[in-house]
Amino acid sequence: ELVLALYDYQEKSPREVTMKKGDILTLLNSTNKDWWKVEVNDRQGFVPASYVKKLD
């Protein structure tokens, strides 16, 4: 499943990933309501769920 980055996000820990507004990311896990695991540029990590939106 793919998600769209709604905002820029700068990683604050090694478990997170940086994304730019408009990026298309692969959603790996959305079981946590606050932090979703995504893959971007061959890196996996977490981003705030409120910063991304699922693409239909």
Rank of each mutant, 00 (worst) to 15 (best):
E1S: 14
E1M: 14
E1W: 14
L2R: 12
L2I: 10
V3I: 08
L4T: 08
L4G: 03
L4W: 07
L4D: 00
L4K: 08
A5L: 02
A5W: 02
A5Y: 00
A5E: 02
A5K: 01
A5T: 03
L6M: 09
L6D: 01
L6C: 06
L6H: 03
Y7M: 12
D8Q: 04
D8H: 06
Y9H: 04
Y9I: 01
Y9E: 00
Y9V: 00
Y9P: 00
Y9M: 01
Q10A: 13
Q10P: 06
Q10C: 10
Q10K: 13
Q10G: 07
E11N: 07
E11C: 11
K12N: 10
K12D: 06
K12G: 08
K12A: 11
K12L: 09
K12Y: 06
S13I: 04
S13N: 13
P14Y: 11
P14W: 10
P14I: 12
R15I: 14
R15L: 14
R15T: 12
R15N: 15
E16Q: 11
E16P: 05
V17L: 15
V17D: 00
V17Q: 04
V17A: 05
M19G: 00
M19T: 03
M19W: 01
M19V: 10
K20P: 00
K20N: 07
K21V: 07
K21P: 03
K21E: 08
K21G: 05
K21M: 09
G22Q: 03
D23I: 04
I24Q: 05
I24W: 05
I24Y: 07
I24R: 06
L25V: 07
T26R: 15
L27V: 07
L27H: 02
L27D: 01
L28E: 02
L28D: 00
L28I: 13
N29Q: 11
N29W: 07
N29K: 07
N29D: 15
S30Y: 07
S30H: 09
S30E: 14
S30R: 09
T31M: 09
T31A: 13
N32T: 07
N32P: 05
N32Y: 08
N32G: 10
K33E: 11
K33Q: 12
K33G: 10
K33H: 12
D34G: 08
D34H: 15
D34V: 14
D34T: 13
D34A: 11
W35S: 02
W35M: 05
W35V: 03
W35N: 02
W36P: 01
K37Q: 13
K37W: 15
K37H: 11
K37C: 13
K37G: 05
V38M: 01
V38D: 00
V38C: 05
V38S: 00
V38P: 00
V38N: 00
E39F: 08
E39T: 09
E39S: 12
V40M: 15
N41I: 12
N41V: 11
R43V: 08
R43P: 00
Q44H: 09
Q44M: 13
G45T: 02
G45C: 03
G45F: 08
F46L: 09
F46T: 03
F46C: 11
F46M: 09
F46R: 03
F46Q: 03
F46N: 04
F46V: 07
V47C: 03
V47Q: 00
V47A: 04
V47M: 01
V47I: 08
P48H: 04
A49G: 04
A49Q: 06
A49I: 03
A49D: 02
A49V: 05
A49W: 02
S50P: 07
S50R: 14
S50W: 10
Y51K: 07
Y51D: 03
Y51S: 11
V52W: 02
V52P: 01
V52T: 04
K53A: 13
K53N: 06
K53D: 08
K53E: 12
K53W: 10
K53Y: 09
K53G: 10
K54T: 08
L55P: 05
L55H: 07
L55V: 11
D56K: 11
